[in-house]
Design a binder for these strands. Structure first.
Lengths: 251, 251
DNA sequence: CCTCATTTCCGTAGGCCATACGGAAACAAT
DNA sequence: ATTGTTTCCGTATGGCCTACGGAAATGAGG
């Protein structure tokens, strides 16, 4: 379906969970078999292996040898669990503030990209209404600090920030899409394209697509590395050009 | 769940459907109550109104007053139906080749953005293994022609193309994310942020986030328009800077 | 009109999913 | 041993996709 995060429940409860502020100590009552951390860890493990689609409450409970409904004692629902998962993996970026502002933005992009590589299901998590936890907030502060040091006006810092965030998450997402599809469908990108050879043979119209034909003949699509390499270069190229443009606008 | 397109079935069948090449005329047998076009149109209508999550085979069949399983006579399965939907709405961009190469790329970006605006469920459709139909192909040809006219080397045309494609789809996707969430959850972005006021009151740490605090105090987050306006400017700003960078790299 | 091959229509059934509800079980304090 | 509190979890509801196979409709040939 979709980016199925939203946190329909009580926002205060979700935010308290994100910052791991337990409601209060409970010396009385039955001992808990599982903790929030265990649930989040197990959920991430399932999603890493089999995709977000396979991360069901029943599946996570099974992983912890616990009844499905037990999870609801610790976590309001599935949407909130996804919030917790996302913020947790965003904390894996350890962002060291070294170098020029450009180097720091590049560093941020690389670390974020690494998160997506390690957790391809992040593709399916919308960042428009993000989990307001430490993982997200620390990243924002890091990029904003770099941009503020660049000499941009405060006003332009915020708009450049949104553009960079959008590019990084968007590019990282489309880069791991391929792997995620491979994981869920069991078919690799190369094999997928290979199976569609029939398209180039029977449907591609040279007259309708002259530019593609020319580029093909000019060897523009000859490639040494894999499809993953190509996407990686595009990520770097695009970010570089975007930063060039931002820098150029300052002078 | 996810970007639930993949076309696990026979690729040749799917491609034939995308280009609307019927297998052959059938003078014999029971008359069909519905056509492929009707199914695709109804599916798009449902997804437009209620999101891709609500676009189930049963729901589409209901729309056409037909049994659920009847759809499978005309369409291999849900994944292929989504392929058909995506390529159909991409055909709605009518791309007129006028102006400089930059103007044409901008034109392409705007038309693609309009598609996402009209069909927010496109956010959930992965473009990594795209539907190889006329809608997608015509768009690719258009951008490549613009870039080829720019004077870029063939080699750089392809990498710039991937970067632009990624930016446009990524930015358009995150721009409509908000609307889609509003549609499915019934809560607007403003109301969502408002309900999380508690975060700024009780959790935001001024010492931990000095840059954000400074920017806030400098009025960088004061805004005249809505959240949608802000995202729109970022889309334009980011594309502009990306094209600046690409153009600058040529000299 | 009847037969028959061909095509489409679609009911049923199996195996998934989230989660509301409410009772059973475990534990600390009295 | 009782009581209050908390956690655990079985059941049930209403959804989803689609494999299977039989019923219904249609045109052609007799």
């Amino acid at each position: 379906m979709a980016a199925e995060r939203s946190g329909g429940g009580d926002p205060a409860r979700t935010i308290a969970l994100l910052w791991r502020r337990p409601p209060e100590p409970k010396p009385v009552g039955r001992k808990a078999k599982v903790s929030v951390d265990q649930i989040v860890t197990a959920a991430i493990a399932v999603a890493d292996r089999e995709g977000l689609g396979a991360m069901s409450m029943a599946r996570v409970a099974q992983e912890l040898t616990v009844g499905t409904m037990s999870l609801y004692t610790h976590v309001p629902g599935k949407a909130e669990l996804i919030d917790l998962m996302a913020d947790t993996v965003l904390q894996e970026r350890d962002l060291t503030p070294e170098g020029t502002w450009r180097e720091r933005v590049k560093h941020y992009a690389d670390r974020t990209r690494a998160v997506y590589q390690a957790h391809p299901w992040m593709r399916d998590v919308s960042m428009v209404r993000p989990p307001l936890g430490p993982g997200l907030m620390d990243g924002q502060e890091f990029v904003l600090a770099a941009l503020a040091d660049s000499g941009l006006e405060p006003r332009h810092v915020t708009v450049a920030h949104v553009a960079i965030e959008g590019f990084v998450h968007g590019a990282a997402a489309s880069e791991v899409d391929d792997q995620q599809l491979e994981r869920t469908t069991g078919e690799s990108g190369d094999s997928w394209w290979g199976a569609r050879q029939v398209f180039w043979d029977d449907y591609f119209d040279v007259e309708r697509y002259p530019t593609m034909t020319n580029l093909w003949n000019a060897g523009a699509y000859d490639t040494d590395g894999t499809l993953a390499d190509t996407m990686r270069s595009s990520f770097d190229y695009g970010l570089e050009k975007l930063l060039d443009g931002i820098e150029g606008g300052m002078r």
